[in-house]
Nucleic acid binder design. Structure first.
Length: 316
RNA sequence: CGCGGGGUAGAGCAGUCCGGUAGCUUGCCAGGCUCAUAACCUGGAGGUCAUGUGGUUCAAAUCCCAUCCCCGCAA
């Protein structure tokens, strides 16, 4: 089968790799354009770009499908199927219709729950105990297409966004191949769905006013990327701390949320408290709370500046 | 040449501004105490202070120069 693959980040790599291994003909790989990034602002090629290059596949990096040349190039591939996995561009109907079988999408949730940009993080953040992969036939809406197949996975109590990402990434690749094999009949999605909001600046900072359980879920969801942050002492890039792992502690208190209840990183939340177990300071590697406390004193009563203490600069 | 932090004992850090005995916490080893502990007490080992037989100096972890490596922001 002649397949066009469209994807960009790590999440899409297993799917492309398994398609290559399966012997299907990859007629083109679409991925986001390389751009300057990293500490030295050198050109950064997406993980999908690198994999495609290694396998000598034709690579296309259009900025948009709004111009006719890009659309025509896509149509001329004469593909049987388009596979889209975290590509990062909205595809117009003319592109969705170009391959004979249309375009299929690997989505990291059980649709119609968590349509949109950040399904993995939002599922953990909401405290879901189960999520999964949906393969669907794309239509013009955002993740509203007909469902071809789904596979479930449990979210364990300590699972992080990063771990779930990796699990779903390979699960999605496997389910895609099975679905291509089986060619199941599409099933209509319910119209009502829940939307997974795109990650925003506010999501980067921890809101201590939530209950300890919610704080823990939020931290799990955002670990290790992009990370939930707080500030120690004052709002300053040198005092920024990312929290990667906490333990919920049932303890009633009348302390302002965000305040240290003891000198061992037990922090008051809106309800109960959490003990920080793993964190990272700006400019430092990730470290355990034990290591952190060996070199830094966080006295009882210290207030860790969370979301409500931070003025988010408005991004135009 | 985007902005910034860092490399000192196994780990986490101070000391660097202002050059003059290598320090702190923890871990490790040995011994003691305790019904007991992430408890306490005593003793001990463990360092080319990233690299350069680089420069300055009577003297460099500290000042100057060059190089390598790690990380945060931003994208």
């Amino acid at each position: 089968m002649k397949i066009v693959f469209m994807g960009t980040p790590d999440f899409a790599v297993p799917a492309l790799q398994k398609l290559i291994d399966s012997g299907h003909q990859i007629v083109a790989v679409y991925t986001k354009e390389p751009k300057p990034a990293g500490q030295h602002l050198c050109m950064k090629y997406s993980p999908v770009y690198q994999l495609a290059e290694k396998n000598n596949l034709p690579i296309y990096t259009p900025k948009t499908f709004k111009n006719p040349e890009a659309v025509e190039a896509f149509q001329n591939l004469d593909a049987d199927l388009g596979v889209v996995c975290a590509y990062g561009l909205i595809l117009p109907q003319v592109i969705l219709d170009a391959p004979k079988m249309g375009c299929w999408n690997i989505h990291a949730s059980l649709l119609p729950r968590w349509r949109g940009a950040a399904p993995i993080q939002r599922a953990i953040e909401a405290g879901d105990i189960q999520t999964g992969i949906t393969i669907m036939k794309m239509d013009a809406g955002i993740d509203t297409g007909d469902i071809l197949s789904q596979e479930k996975v449990d979210i364990t109590p300590n699972m992080t966004g990063g771990q779930l990402h990796d699990i779903l990434s390979t699960m999605g690749a496997d389910l895609l191949l099975q679905t291509i094999e089986a060619q199941p009949a599409p099933i209509k999605q319910p119209e009502e769905g829940i939307y997974a909001k795109k990650l925003s600046d506010e999501d980067m900072f921890l809101d201590w006013n939530m209950s300890a359980d919610q704080v823990c879920n939020a931290i799990r969801a955002f670990a290790p990327y992009p990370g939930k942050r707080v500030y120690l002492d004052k709002i300053d890039s040198q005092n920024q701390i990312k929290i990667y792992c906490v333990e919920v502690v049932d303890i009633s208190h009348n302390t302002k949320p965000g305040t240290a209840i003891d000198d061992k990183l037990l922090i008051a939340c809106g309800k109960n408290a959490v003990r920080i177990q793993e964190l990272q300071r700006s400019g430092k590697a990730k470290q355990s709370a034990h290591d952190f406390l060996n070199g830094t004193v966080v006295a009882k009563g210290t207030y860790l500046l969370g979301l409500d203490a931070i003025k988010i600069p408005k991004t135009p």
